[in-house]
Design a protein around this nucleic acid. Structure first.
Lengths: 243, 243
DNA sequence: CGTTGTGTTGATATTAATCAACAAGTGTGG
DNA sequence: CCACACTTGTTGATTAATATCAACACAACG
């Protein structure tokens, strides 16, 4: 196991028995499409990587020649203004794809929140593969469409929700696990600063709102990165703007 | 020519000589992909429509069984909160597609800003067609990716830009025509209320900022819906956050 | 010619940002 | 082991940007 010193990520040999990064993704990912496709060919172009917390592996201005599939950990995607103001456009976890939204004059950055595992694909090679397997292309379109829907929901949050509503939305979003089910225990691998930049707020406002939720018995806070939802109904009401 | 009274839109017989709605779209649309495809089959499923200003033709909660291609006019896409707060997620003009971002539990509305022409496609029928023409599917993925990039840019605006920067970004975005070229004359078919809901501001703030730009000789205002950019460089500096 | 919708401008209020202090946790080196 | 710096998070006091409230101008329209 080699820790990269000059590069932001580590390229590891694929463990024997691993089929490919895409196949480790969650159930609503490319998997079903891949069943029909040549797994050997896919595995041949998938490069498994590991990225340490805080390392940036996509930087604004990079030529976007790679496509990523997150197989573990959490990645933050963000855009910057020249004076350092930052907007985190999303957090990507296991099963998420990075690099769908690449158009010619478009720039964003990606940084590991905690230790991240992902599979890297050369766009050129993936394109060749996609030509033979239109079902995979179709699946990518579905993924892009659902990302777009999420982006529009976030625009509603950023443009029209209050700080209180934003925090409630964030927590309820985090509580949502696969199949639309909810869990009461939330782990927040990102810092308050990340949350603030995701919600278009300051760290102080994030901290204050969480304290207020705690005082109102809507949540419990355990050590700043673990939260238990105590009143999901009230939070949901807040999150949907029925203040 | 029939004006709809009970329906929000008019379905018109396709004019002779018209190939199909998709083919009337601007150059960066589906057109190139369609060249390879059976135009007769595409025309057979395209339903040309006309929508009068203010008419809503996609409503939250609608089952999303149609896909649209705007061939003329301007459409506003928006999401609502229960108490009426509104976020306009985008304006779609000639060549834009509506309905890419449809996932199961996702709701948005679309309303004509001015008189709008569009082609309606049944999703089911389009899917069958796409199966035979993977190039079209590929093109749709590109479109979705560039929409996603635009959405993320808008998140940066909503989350981190000042009112002044938002207005500058809006104007510069409107000044951008095909091929990345700029025009000094901008027509704004939407109301101040629409602009405010697009930028996450109030109508008063929008009005004040435009007046200020005018006072600063950055723009000229002619009759509230036509603007001439007098200092594009200054506006661009503002828009990119180099306040 | 009043009515209505849209836009502008001014006065005031309010939310969230900024400025500031401090607490808790982490890692370092003496 | 402890002093120290450093990062992260919390809370309080104050400020500032933008929203809200209000008045009015203007055009379109019946």
């Amino acid at each position: 196991m080699v820790i990269a010193r000059t590069q932001p990520f580590v390229i590891e040999p694929m463990a024997s028995g691993t089929r490919c990064g895409l196949c480790e993704a969650r159930s609503d990912s490319l998997c079903s499409a891949i069943e029909e496709c040549d797994l050997v060919r896919l595995a041949a172009i998938a490069v498994p990587m590991r990225v340490e917390p805080g390392r940036c592996f996509i930087e604004e201005g990079d030529v976007a020649e790679h496509f990523f599939n997150v197989t573990g950990g959490t990645v933050k995607l963000f855009k910057l203004l020249p004076d350092g103001r930052r907007q985190i456009t999303g957090f990507a976890g296991r099963g998420h794809f990075l690099g769908l939204a690449v158009s010619s004059s478009y720039a964003f950055s990606a940084e590991a929140v905690d230790q991240v595992q992902l599979c890297r694909f050369s766009r050129a090679k993936l394109r060749i593969l996609l030509d033979d397997f239109p079902a995979m292309e179709k699946r990518l379109l579905e993924v892009a469409a659902s990302e777009l829907a999420a982006a529009q929901e976030q625009m509603l949050l950023l443009g029209r929700k209050t700080a209180r509503e934003r925090l409630a939305s964030f927590l309820m979003g985090r509580a949502l696990v696969a199949d639309g089910e909810m869990t009461a225990r939330i782990h927040l691998p990102m810092t308050r600063s990340d949350i603030a930049d995701y919600l278009g707020l300051t760290i102080e406002t994030v901290s204050r709102m969480l304290s207020r939720f705690k005082a109102e018995r809507l949540i419990e806070i355990h050590g700043s990165s673990d939260i238990v939802i105590r009143n999901a109904a009230a939070l949901e009401t807040l999150a949907t703007g029925m203040t």
